[in-house]
Write a protein that binds this DNA or RNA. Structure first.
Length: 260
DNA sequence: ATGCCCTATGATATAGGA
C-alpha cells in the first residue's frame, strides 16, 4: 500500500502534473492540499479515468483539501470536530476517510503569517483541534492504522530549513509551534521521516527568490501515524523530481509505503 | 539591500502563500 501527500497549489493549474505523477508513482491513496477551487469544480472524471475516487472539501479561491483513493473511500469526515473559525468561517483544511481499512486525514494547517498575527494564534488553536480529533478517533478504533498527512506548516527541527538564521522571528520554526508537534507525539503519534531523493530533506521551496534553484527549502509536509501504521512502514521518500521544471507546485509529494 | 514567483478573482490590482 502506497500513500502520498502533496500540496498541489491549485488542482486546476496542476491537473496535468498530478495526473502524470499518479501514473508514474502509482499511489493507492493521495492526500491533496491547496485545491484552490470549489469542491463542485474538482475534476472528478479525470481522476476516475485513472481508477481514483475523490472526496474533496473546498469553497473557492483559498485552501481546499481532498483524498484520492483507488482502494476504497469510506466514512468521509469533513473538517475537524472542534476546528476553530478564522474571521467567522470554518476553512476547508481537513478531510478524513477510511481507505482499505486505514484511517487517513489530509490536512492543510494554517500558515500563521506572522508571530504577532491573529493567524498565528489561529494556527496554534487549529493544532489543538487536530490533536482532539486524533485522540477521539484513535480511542474509538484503537486497532486501526491511523495517519495524518499533509502540509503542517511547521519545520520540526532547525535542520529542516535551509538556514535557521534566516528564520529569526519567523513562523514555522517557533517553539510554540514545535510544541504542538510534541503534543501530537504525546498522544501516540509518531513521525515518519522520509529520505530525500537528492540530499536535501525539504518538501517545499518558495517560488519567490527562486528557492528551489538556490536550495532554499523547508521540510513542512509531514507524516504522522499511530504505531499500528508506522510499525509497518517499508519506505518513505520525498519526490523532489516533481518540484522541477515549468508548471511545478512549490511543494513536492511525500510518499510512504506500508505493509500491514 | 531588495525582489525575483505563482495562483484565482466580479481581475487590468490584490491577497495570500511561508
Amino acid at each position: 500500500m502506497r500513500i502520498a501527500t502533496w500540496n498541489v497549489n491549485s488542482i486546476g493549474a496542476r491537473l496535468p502534473r498530478v495526473l502524470e505523477w499518479l501514473e508514474v508513482a502509482q499511489p493507492d491513496v493521495l492526500a491533496v492540499q491547496e485545491l484552490k477551487c470549489a469542491e463542485t469544480a474538482v475534476p472528478v472524471e479525470e481522476f476516475a479515468a485513472l481508477g481514483y475516487e475523490i472526496a474533496a472539501l473546498g469553497d473557492g479561491r483559498w485552501n481546499g483539501v481532498a483524498l484520492l483513493s483507488r482502494v476504497g473511500l469510506e466514512d468521509v469526515t469533513r473538517n475537524l470536530p472542534t476546528q476553530p473559525e478564522f474571521e467567522g468561517s470554518i476553512e476547508p483544511r481537513a478531510i478524513g476517510a477510511t481507505c482499505s481499512g486505514i484511517r487517513v486525514w489530509s490536512v492543510y494547517v494554517p500558515n500563521g503569517r506572522e508571530v504577532d498575527h491573529a493567524h498565528y494564534t489561529y494556527k496554534l488553536q487549529w493544532y489543538d483541534a487536530l490533536r482532539d480529533m486524533a485522540v477521539a478517533e484513535m480511542a474509538a478504533n484503537p486497532d486501526q492504522a491511523f495517519t495524518i498527512i499533509g502540509d503542517y506548516n511547521i519545520a520540526p527541527t532547525d535542520a529542516d530549513v535551509w538556514d535557521i538564521s534566516a528564520f529569526a522571528n519567523s513562523t514555522h520554526v517557533t517553539e510554540p509551534e514545535r510544541a504542538k508537534l510534541r503534543d501530537l507525539e504525546a498522544i501516540g503519534l509518531i513521525e515518519v521521516i522520509p529520505r530525500a531523493l537528492k540530499g536535501e530533506p525539504y518538501t517545499f521551496w518558495d517560488y519567490r527568490d527562486l528557492g528551489f534553484q538556490k536550495g532554499k527549502g523547508m521540510r513542512i509536509d509531514l507524516i504522522y501515524g499511530n504505531a499500528r501504521l508506522t510499525d509497518c512502514v517499508t519506505g518513505a521518500y520525498v519526490d523532489r523530481e516533481a518540484r522541477k521544471g515549468k508548471g511545478a507546485s512549490d511543494h513536492a509529494p511525500v510518499v510512504i509505503d506500508i505493509s500491514l
